[in-house]
């Protein structure tokens, strides 16, 4: 039966407390004990010394003072926040051609691209639905779009009280 304790603590292993346990029995020596005592105290003092070094020379500290630095905080250009449509520079119309590749690429079904017909009977983007609550910010949709019509935006404070607030309509809201 394997109920008996299998690992006897420190068996066959030199114990730092100044004793040695070759047979399950601790053999003490005064010299070993004292050496251990002094070295042990020294190690604690050294550790505290390092902490006080940082305390008096905080130059190596790299902590960001968020949220105090909110105004000046700039995320990296590639930062993957929530999805956003890229708009045409001149007219403000979306670059999206409603091809639906991003919808296919999304592993979580976060995107729905709905089309409509314009006056010339061409298929154009009607509504762009984005369920942020389902999105894992994986970047696959952005990679799949050959038109560069979507990007990951830079905002990151995206918590909401209600999951329905995370059902976003990126385009065609008024319809």
């Amino acid at each position: 039966m394997k109920t008996q304790a299998k690992n006897i603590q420190g068996r066959g292993y030199p114990v730092e407390r100044g004793g040695f346990v070759p047979d399950g029995q601790v053999h003490w020596s005064l010299a070993g004990y004292l050496t251990h005592l002094v070295n042990g105290c020294l190690s604690l003092v050294k550790g505290m010394g390092l902490t006080f070094g940082y305390f008096s020379h905080p130059g190596r500290i790299i902590t960001q003072q968020y949220p105090e630095n909110r105004e000046t905080l700039v995320m990296f250009p590639r930062f993957r926040g929530r999805l956003a449509l890229v708009m045409d520079e001149a007219g403000g119309a979306p670059l999206c051609t409603a091809c639906g590749m991003c919808e296919k690429a999304c592993p979580n079904g976060s995107i729905s691209v709905l089309t409509r017909r314009d006056s010339g009977n061409r298929k154009v983007l009607g509504r762009y639905l984005y369920r942020f609550s389902q999105c894992t910010l994986c970047n696959l949709c952005v990679e799949s779009c050959v038109f560069g019509a979507i990007r990951m935006a830079q905002d990151f404070e995206l918590a909401a009280y209600d999951s329905s607030d995370l059902q976003l309509v990126l385009y065609g809201k008024e319809e």
């Binding site: 420190g10 114990v15 730092e16 070295n39 390092l50």
Partner: peptide
């Protein structure tokens, strides 16, 4: 090296990990 000073050489660390969980 700092980590060594803080934890690796710390006596409490030794007592709590040496010979434990072989």
């Amino acid at each position: 090296d700092e980590y060594d000073t803080l934890l690796t050489n710390n006596v409490i660390m030794h007592l709590r990990t040496k010979g434990i969980g072989v």
